[in-house]
Computed example of a mutant assay.
Amino acid sequence: MDSVIKKLPGISLAAIIAVPAWVLGQQFPVIGSPVLGILFGMLLAFWKRPPAFQSGVTYTSKKLLQYSIILLGFDMNLFQIFQAGSQTLLLMAFTLTATFLGAYLVGKALKVDRDTNILVGVGTAICGGSAIAATAPVIGAKDEDVARSISTIFLFNVIAAFLFPFLGHTMQMSDFHFGLWAGTAINDTSSVVAAGYTFSDAAGNLAVIVKLTRTLMIIPVTLVLAFYTAKRQSRTGSANYSFAKIFPWFVVGFVAAAVINTFLPLPAGMGKSLASFGKFVIVMAMAAIGLNTNLIDLVKHGWRPVVLGFSCWAILAVTSLAVQYGLPGSLF
């Protein structure tokens, strides 16, 4: 109980910051609440807050962030995901492989630090902020790395929402092909929705389903990263090495939530409400991360992640098009 009381000031501060970020994010979905949360938090980081807040701020940015991912599972319907079919899974196998490989090579050439490299790669390849939120605790990323990665992903989300429909019409893409392209090559759900439905209703419907399928890739990717982190710590002889601590248990909760939402008769709207609350907690976590981030240092050292993010984004978009139009017509 004492521990809970000690954390309440910091948790409350993150919640207070998250409220206006959440409201404004609903009005401007292309920007999104998580980005606003982290931005507001970074602005308030200039305030020298009392030490009593720090415990709760840290808890929100680490533990509550993991719990929020579990709640997102309640908005997943596995039957709907499976209906996306083998075409989507094949396409994602190519795009994810190309993006991760590109992130590794470009990040190494730019000398981007390991954690930021992983977060930008995962955020680009899978689903933006949610993937970064799920990956950060697995690899033990610092708040500065998360802030840098979220900011980078946000920049290309906004560009994609406006650029993709224009490019789609210019290339005379069908609703089907554009839906696949938007669903696999745009990072955040809000930008996928904006771009997909700007092109057409049919393209938007397909893009959202593809995006949901892509979100499930959080599961294998975080598990692989957990094994990688465990092996790395074991090899370096880390005193804190423990695979049980590194293992992303919250991903198990995410899967359980998706199974419950798919197979159990939850009250109408309950799944979406729980997922919405999870998204609000993510905004709280982003605000807490912002509170622990030095905005001046972020801007000063931010150009490399931006170049990395652009490279990953370009690789993802081009690979999606190449696979769709380059493979036999029987597949796409």
Score class of each variant (00 low, 15 high):
Leu225Met: 14
Leu163Thr: 14
Ile260Pro: 07
His301Leu: 11
Arg235Ser: 12
Val307Gln: 10
Val208Glu: 04
Asn240Gly: 10
Phe263Arg: 12
Leu180Arg: 00
Ser174Val: 04
Ile219Ser: 07
Gly309Tyr: 11
Leu216Thr: 12
Leu291Phe: 04
Met171His: 09
Phe199Asp: 01
Leu167Thr: 09
Thr236Ile: 11
Ile282Thr: 11
Thr215Trp: 00
Trp249Ser: 12
Ser191Trp: 01
Lys231Met: 09
Val283Arg: 05
Thr170Pro: 01
Val259Leu: 15
Ile246Tyr: 01
Val281Ile: 15
Val210Asp: 00
Val210Leu: 02
Gly302Gln: 09
Phe166Ala: 10
Ala194Val: 13
Thr170Glu: 08
Ala258Asp: 06
Leu308Tyr: 11
Leu212Asp: 02
Phe227Pro: 02
Gly269Thr: 02
Lys279Gly: 12
Lys231Gln: 10
Ala288Lys: 01
Lys211Ile: 11
Pro305His: 06
Val255Lys: 08
Thr222Cys: 15
Ala244Ile: 14
Gly179Asn: 00
Val224Thr: 13
Ala257Tyr: 02
Phe277Glu: 12
Val221Ile: 15
His177Gln: 14
Leu216Glu: 01
Trp181Glu: 00
Thr262Val: 11
Met286Glu: 06
Phe247Asp: 04
Phe277Gly: 15
Phe310Leu: 15
Thr213Tyr: 04
Thr184Ile: 07
Val221Asp: 00
Ser200Ala: 10
Gly168Ile: 01
Trp249Met: 05
His177Pro: 00
Met217Gly: 08
Ser234Asn: 13
Asp201Lys: 13
Phe247Arg: 07
Phe164Ser: 08
Gln233Ile: 03
Val259Thr: 13
Gly302Asn: 10
Ile218Gln: 03
Ala285Cys: 10
Tyr241Met: 12
Met270Gln: 13
Asn240Thr: 15
Asp297Met: 10
Phe199Leu: 03
Arg214Ile: 08
Lys211Ala: 05
Leu298Gly: 07
Thr222Val: 13
Val208Arg: 03
Asn294Ile: 11
Asn240Leu: 11
Leu266Glu: 04
Leu295Ser: 13
Thr215Gly: 05
Ala202Asp: 10
Arg304Thr: 11
Leu212Asn: 10
Ile282Val: 14
Ser242Asn: 15
Lys211Pro: 08
Leu225Cys: 07
Ile289Pro: 02
Phe176Asp: 06
Met284Glu: 06
Leu308Pro: 08
Asn292Gln: 15
Pro220Gln: 09
Thr236Leu: 12
Thr189Gly: 04
Phe243Thr: 14
Val208Trp: 06
Lys245Glu: 10
Thr184Asn: 06
Val283Asn: 07
Gln172Phe: 09
Thr236Ala: 13
Val251Pro: 00
Ala288Arg: 01
Leu180Trp: 03
Ala285Asn: 09
Val251Leu: 14
Trp181Leu: 02
Asn205Cys: 02
Ile289Met: 10
Ala268Pro: 06
Trp303Pro: 02
Thr170Trp: 14
Ala230Gly: 14
Tyr197Glu: 07
Val299Pro: 05
Thr213Lys: 06
Gly196Tyr: 02
Thr215Pro: 00
Tyr197Ala: 09
Pro220Trp: 08
Leu274Thr: 05
Asn292Trp: 03
Ala258Glu: 06
Thr198Gly: 05
Ser242Gly: 08
Gly183Tyr: 00
